[in-house]
Amino acid sequence: MTPATTTSSTIDDEVGERPDDNISAVPLRHWGRWTGAAVVVLFSASFLWSLARNPNMEWGIVGEYLFADFVLQGVGVTLMLTAVAMVIGTVGGVGVAVMRLSHNPVLRIGSWLFVWFFRGTPLLVQIIFWGFLAALYQRIQLGVPFTDWYLVDVSTNDVVTPLVAAILALSLNEIAYAAEVVRSGIASVDEGQDDAAQALGLTGQQTMRTVTLPQAMRVIVPPMGNETITMLKSTALVSVIGGKDLLTSVQSVYAQNFQVIPLLLVAALWYLAMVSVLSLGQYFLERRFGRGHGPARTGLAERWLTGRGK
């Protein structure tokens, strides 16, 4: 103790004796950085120049269609699909995650199988599958099992329109991913919290609802923001079954007027704009829920865990 104090006071004294001993060295030139930057600027500029001057871009046509009715309708459907799939996905995800952690082995295995299947097959395949559901079941019937008595009996194609198929595919897929995010969030909450809640006489359900889940939110929210951004772009996949989303809308027009590139540009600009707004929202959510807990690291861990990183 005492020697350390002496030493530090000696240093203080020295500094105190020569207060104007500032360093004024010649800065080191970072030639590598300058060269790297120059190369990047040069290539980017020439690429942008070629894009801007490329007549095939048809900037005039892009401007003409940017706010066309069918484009705006497509944007609306894309936003609606994203919102609906995320709401169903999150609610269902919490359910599946809780099942995963339940004491009931049937629920545990069932939820594991669900996640295994929907994460294990490509989303595109699932979308096409739901689009062609009528080929599997021509009629949807709901009644007493193994009898001829039905409460509901409808033609599959009447009920599962492309839009419904799109919602089904995106939602079920999202439930599987959200379940993993929620599960890791719940697992991140200290076991002592559970002990304390139980010791106070809370039931398991009350503990989950009022103690565990609210604390898991800190870990759940950032990756769910990511999920939302991924979902917004994944909605473009439903164009394969004519889901009426943004990509479907521009496709159906360029199929007639052959303005493929400008119309794809219109779609791309809209996707970029929507994702930018979501990213901003995610930034604020992460700041809100990650206070003092190293949000960046958790986020990365979640992305890695969910296998849906960017």
Binding site: Q193, D195, A196, A199, Q215
Partner: peptide
Amino acid sequence: RRRIGMVFQRFNLFS
């Protein structure tokens, strides 16, 4: 359990 209070080594307050 409501009739038995418990205090833990690591406090376990709801954060």
